[in-house]
Amino acid sequence: MIRRRQAATAWLFLTPAVLFFTLLFFLPIGNQLLTGLYDADGVSFVGLGNFSRALSDPEVVHSFLITLLYAAGTLIVGTAVGLGLAVILNQALPGRTLFRSLLLIPYLTSVSIVGLLWRNILDPQVGILNRLLESLGLPGQTWLSTHPLATIVGITVWSGAGYTMVLFLAGLQGIPGLYYEAARIDGAGPWRRFFAITLPLLAPTTLFVSIIGLISTLQQFALPYIVTGGGPGNATSLYAHRLFIVAFNDNDFGYASALSVLLLIVVLVLSLAQLRIGDRANA
């Protein structure tokens, strides 16, 4: 009796959530799976046509490949910087709380500010970075026209390094200090200790950081949209930007839905991999 009353109460309390997640998550996702099977007009059924079209569409294939490049660059550089910062800031240094927080500011700053600010700083005509390089006797660069993708990677790392650092700091807390004591007694130097203790024991954290980094870089839209508009040409038109153009410039919602379903599949596989790894790490 009490149990049944509690069940009724529980579902009553959950009603807003059931409505919200059904109407704004599950029905839209189901709708995407269906819409992806139709032509731009939304009436002609094309089956898996949109999916095979995606695989042979040079614009889509290009956007996917540069997204992989962008993700790889961001992950490698971002992980190295974040890990380095975490190791340094895991020591008992006066002022480390301040440094930790300062390094997080770009992560909490609007992508509009980040994008516009760097566009100004990197501008070959009015930007200050080239002037700074020239005053140091280094040649100025046309950053966004010569190395657009690498520059976007750089800006991404600038804004995300603090967050990566926080995740690694949490991982470092889990390594018993005893290991370092023992290694020190055995005469292992600092680099030896880093490679023999810190790095292997951080492996689950590194994997976690890489997968959530991959999931978010695969969906990156705003930064290239603001900084380069996808250009020059389509050099920084990442997958999400291509999807946006197909949906809102070409008005081809069927095709865009198919592209979003492909994105969903990749992200789902990565998320499930992350869950399994997490289970194994906890077991």
Partner: peptide, 11 residues
Amino acid sequence: MVPFFVRMLPI
């Protein structure tokens, strides 16, 4: 696990 892009178009 659902990217915003997946529910954006139908919404």
